[in-house]
């Protein structure tokens, strides 16, 4: 009787998304923490929040984005709550855009992910420009390369979340 109160499908999806987040965070911080291309490391964790938001809507995207961001904030030394706020916003707005403004096709997701990745890279670089006097000439190439190297990781995130959500794309 108690089980009747639980939406098993939703719980199953939530668990699977938590596994996706765990896998993303593990890949980001344990498996590929020092994967450098031209001296720059990718930072692809935001794509998990965007993918979940796009396929599950703003609320799921926001909450699970918050968890992804919290995990990243705990794992990285440079920030305390930056990613928590940023990824929750990414998940929420990806959900809103996916539900009302854009379709859920792969290229829409890729553009959305690229925007989120670029914004993350710029937010990471901003304190160095604002408070440490590092020139934009130095910071922008790093931010752009970081975005570029991170985009390929969006591909598995898209198809994984699409599979979990069990939804077909909405045009």
């Amino acid at each position: 009787m108690f089980l009747d109160l639980i939406n098993i499908q939703k719980v199953r999806r939530a668990i699977l998304y938590l596994l996706v987040i765990a896998l993303t965070v593990w890949m980001q911080f344990s498996l590929l923490p020092d994967l450098r291309i031209l001296g720059v490391k990718p930072f692809f964790a935001p794509v998990a929040a965007v993918a979940i938001g796009l396929w599950e809507g703003g609320v799921w995207g926001g909450v699970l984005g918050l968890l992804t961001g919290l995990s990243c904030d705990l794992a990285l030394n440079e920030s305390t709550v930056t990613f928590l706020i940023l990824f929750a916003a990414f998940g929420f707005f990806a959900g809103v855009l996916g539900s009302y403004v854009i379709n859920r096709r792969f290229f829409s997701f890729l553009l959305l992910s690229a925007a989120a990745l670029l914004l993350t890279a710029l937010v990471q670089a901003a304190p160095f420009w604002l408070f440490r006097g590092v020139s934009l000439d130095t910071l922008l190439p790093i931010a752009l390369l970081q975005t570029l190297w991170s985009v390929p990781f969006a591909v598995p995130a898209y198809y994984l979340c699409k599979k979990i959500s069990g939804k077909r794309r909405i045009n």
Binding site: G58, G62, L66, T80, V81, A88, A89, F92
Partner: peptide, 20 residues
């Protein structure tokens, strides 16, 4: 949708951010 869920999520995010 935005006016219903936006502020709620913002409050949750702010509380968690504050605690962390």
């Amino acid at each position: 949708y935005l006016s219903k869920y936006g502020p709620r999520l913002a409050v949750v995010v702010l509380i968690v951010a504050l605690i962390v």
